[in-house]
Structures are given as structure tokens and as C-alpha cells.
Design a binder for these strands. Structure first.
Ligand SMILES: [Mn+2]
Ligand SMILES: [Mn+2]
Ligand SMILES: [Mn+2]
Ligand SMILES: [Mn+2]
Lengths: 218, 218
DNA sequence: ATATATTTTTAGGCAAACCTAAATTTTATT
DNA sequence: AATAAAATTTAGGTTTGCCTAAAAATATAT
């Protein structure tokens, strides 16, 4: 079944908020995430439920069904493939791509997705380090840990950052990108901020807020 | 001003039907072209007119204003750039691209269009031979003539074909593509059908209907 | 010139997706 | 357990873009 852009955005939002455990997602979370009001969300949840894309019991939040998950994964696949395309082929920077990918992810054409995937040589991660689901919706999972949890003196490689333009521009400014080698020189126990050595060159102090949005591999 | 997909499709349709002279386009023509009803068109014409995208006087058809033309040209530019991309980069065939381009043409991002144009190395014609307007909306005009008007014994190069999937598949089947060299061996004066020699190799008989949809350069 | 046919517009409705305000249910606090 | 607060749902509207049926205007044919 072909869905409207709106339905696709609801599915994607529920998918992202449910996390790996497919936990129940609340009406308010969805509303906040989509920039709509709770009343509008309730209305849409009834429609999604009628289509068996979600399990919905009044006042109890929602979970995606297998069908809903499958559709959400396809949208995520398209979003991330397009982001990869924009960076690798069209020379966009990583903070410019999300908004455009939000539009491109809704283009309906199976052949387009598969040809794009081939053209890009089947990338496994998007420019922010998020895994790209394969045609069947399977996501490669890597074991990452948040930079905020890395102990003093340890070294780590940046593998994933949160896709938020402001954060991304800031990271670019201080010289952090996917693949950067970080050494945690010092952790401030008061505010959780940390002093980093980036690629063995520059020392930079980052807030806990920033450290929460960077994931690394030791 | 950002327009809805629907408004963009109306502008594009009016643009295509108005032709080079910016002739008035009728309500029924638009309805037929968009697969909507005349009543819906009338309603939309009022909105376009209120936005000064068209000149509209009841019962008199419409013409695009400069602003309307400019917007239509941008959509046409995007449509044709995406078609070029699909064929040249993603290995689509010329009959598979129109529907996808109908969706892609509505992606709103100026930077995307310009980066795509650069990535494709500023193509001047799409896969059917239609000229791609440049950033300013300027279209390269070539002097072509319809194959139906080519006199017996003459040779001509195929430069443009109508973007209709069924026609395109048929042309592929009989070996006609952009750049093919055609010799008009014989014209049937009864039904206007013609016998062609394609690239000096194959002889093929085509109907007047087909000949109307091929344009050539002598 | 009048009658007929065609085109276009108007009037009244519908579905999708949003909204605000009010009612209801659930959760948290005393 | 009763009350207050927060979350969710319901009720009633709005806008966009479509529809059918009827009315009005224009074009065509006798
Ligand atoms: Mn993104
Ligand atoms: Mn989206
Ligand atoms: Mn096309
Ligand atoms: Mn379109």
C-alpha cells in the first residue's frame, strides 16, 4: 500500500522513538517530534491502527507492527541512502543534508532505491555514522558507546554523531568528524565536561551535552 | 513563495500547453492533462490568479505571467535534470524515467538543483532531446522539424522524441534513439506512413502517428 | 436568428491533515 | 483516598484539492 508523506513521517517517528526494543511511544512524544498537536496525533493513530501499522490501545501509547516496522525501515533506508548521495556525489556537507533527505525519502520508486544503492556501491553507513538498512530492512549493528561514558586516558574512534545541523557545524568547527581519533585527557567531575585530544593534534574542551551526542568505538 | 505540488503541476501544464507563443490555455485542456475535472481547474485558476501566477479572465483561458513562467521553467529544469541523472548515472532506460521525475521535480532545494547540475556537468538536453533550461530559465533553442514533414530521399538525425513511455519502448524496439540517422526511403501518400532506413542498416515502416512524435535535424 | 451543443463556472460536498477548546483518563502528590 | 497535575481523547473547525450536478456563457449548426 502506498502511504501519504504524513503517514510515512508518523511511522518513521514512532520507529525512532521506540528504539531497539520496540518500546511503546506516547502521543506527546510523537506530537513533539513532528511539530503537531496531541489531538492530531490521536487522530492519525486511529488511522494507522486501522491499517494495522501500529498496535494502539487508548491511553497506552503505540508500538509498530511488523508491517509498520518494515515500512519505517524502508523510509529510513531511503533517507540515509540519499544523505550518502548528497555528501559523496553532490559535495554537500553533513549539516546540509537532513532537510533535503526529509523530502527525498518520500519518493516512491522501488527501482530508484535499488539503483541508487548500486550506484553508491551499497554503503553501510550514512554521513553521520547511522547504519543504512539493506533491501530487506536488516540493519548492521555495531557496538558503540557514548563518548560521555569513556573513561579518562582512553582512546576512541568517532563512529556516530547525532544528526542535528547545529551540532554538526560545531563539531566541524572543532575538528571532529567520523573517524576522528579522540583521547580523553581529562574529565571534569563537576559538570561532566571533558578535555579531548583530537587526532593527536588539538586539545578541545567539550560539554557533557556534546559528549552525549558522539558515539565511539574503543 | 513555496508552492504546493499541485500548484506546481498546474503551472507546468499551462506552460507546456501554451507553447512558445505563450498562447491562452483552456480549462478543459488543463483538466484533461492533469486528469482532474473542469470544476477543479476553475477553482485552482482563481488561486493562481490571486497569486499573480497567471492572467485569468472568466471563460477566456489563461496565460502565465512572468512570475508564473519563471516558476514553471524551474520545475521543467528540475524534471529534465533528474531524467538525465536517472539515465546517465542510475542506468534507467528512457521510458522508465518520466514518472519518477514527476516526483523528483517537486523537491524544494535550490542548492540541490545547482549541485546536481554541476555533478551532471551542465547537460543541455534531457534523454528525450528536450532542452534543459539553465539556472536563469533560458532554454537553448534548436531548429528542428518534425519527421512527418521530411521529404522523400532526405537524411535526418533524430534530435527529439515525445516523452511517452509506450512510444519510447516502441522506438527502442525498432532501433530509433536520439542521434539515429534516418533516411526517408518512401512516403505513402495515402496514410502518410513512411519507410525509413535507420543508421544505414534496417528498413522500418512507421505510421504518421509515430512520425509526428519524432523531430529531426537535416 | 434561433436552437443545440460545448465549455466553463458556481454551488454544495467529501477526505486528509491540521488546529483549539473542552472532556476524560491516568499519574502524581498530599 | 482524595485532589491536583499531566496526558490523552473527543468535539467541532479550517484549509487544500478534489468531486458531481446544475446553471450560465459561449460556440456551432440549422
Ligand atoms: Mn538525516
Ligand atoms: Mn519526511
Ligand atoms: Mn519527462
Ligand atoms: Mn509533477
Amino acid at each position: 500500500m502506498i502511504q501519504t508523506t504524513s503517514v510515512e513521517n508518523y511511522l518513521k517517528t514512532i520507529f525512532h522513538h521506540a528504539g531497539i526494543g520496540n518500546n511503546a511511544v506516547t502521543t506527546n512524544e510523537i506530537a513533539a517530534s513532528l511539530g503537531t498537536k496531541a489531538a492530531s496525533v490521536t487522530e492519525m493513530l486511529k488511522k494507522l491502527s486501522a491499517q494495522k501499522l501500529i498496535r494502539y490501545k487508548k491511553y497506552n501509547g503505540v508500538t509498530l507492527t511488523d508491517s509498520g516496522t518494515k515500512q519505517a525501515l524502508l523510509i529510513v533506508r531511503k533517507h540515509r541512502l540519499w544523505e550518502y548521495f548528497l555528501v559523496e556525489k553532490l559535495e554537500f556537507s553533513w549539516d546540509e543534508i537532513h532537510e533535503v533527505a526529509e523530502q527525498l525519502e518520500h519518493i516512491q520508486s522501488e527501482i530508484l532505491v535499488e539503483r541508487l544503492d548500486s550506484f553508491l556501491e551499497n554503503p553501510k553507513f550514512d554521513p553521520h555514522g547511522d547504519p543504512i538498512p539493506d533491501k530487506k530492512g536488516i540493519i548492521k549493528k555495531t557496538d558503540l558507546q557514548k563518548l560521555i561514558d569513556v573513561t579518562e586516558k582512553k582512546e576512541a574512534i568517532v563512529n556516530l554523531v547525532t544528526d542535528q545541523p547545529e551540532l554538526l557545524r560545531y563539531l566541524s568547527k572543532i575538528g571532529i568528524s567520523i573517524g576522528s581519533k579522540l583521547r580523553v585527557i581529562e574529565r571534569n567531575t563537576f559538570d561532566q565536561s571533558m578535555l579531548l585530544l583530537i587526532n593527536g593534534k588539538n586539545k578541545v574542551q567539550i560539554s557533557a551535552e556534546i559528549a552525549h551526542n558522539i558515539s565511539v568505538q574503543l
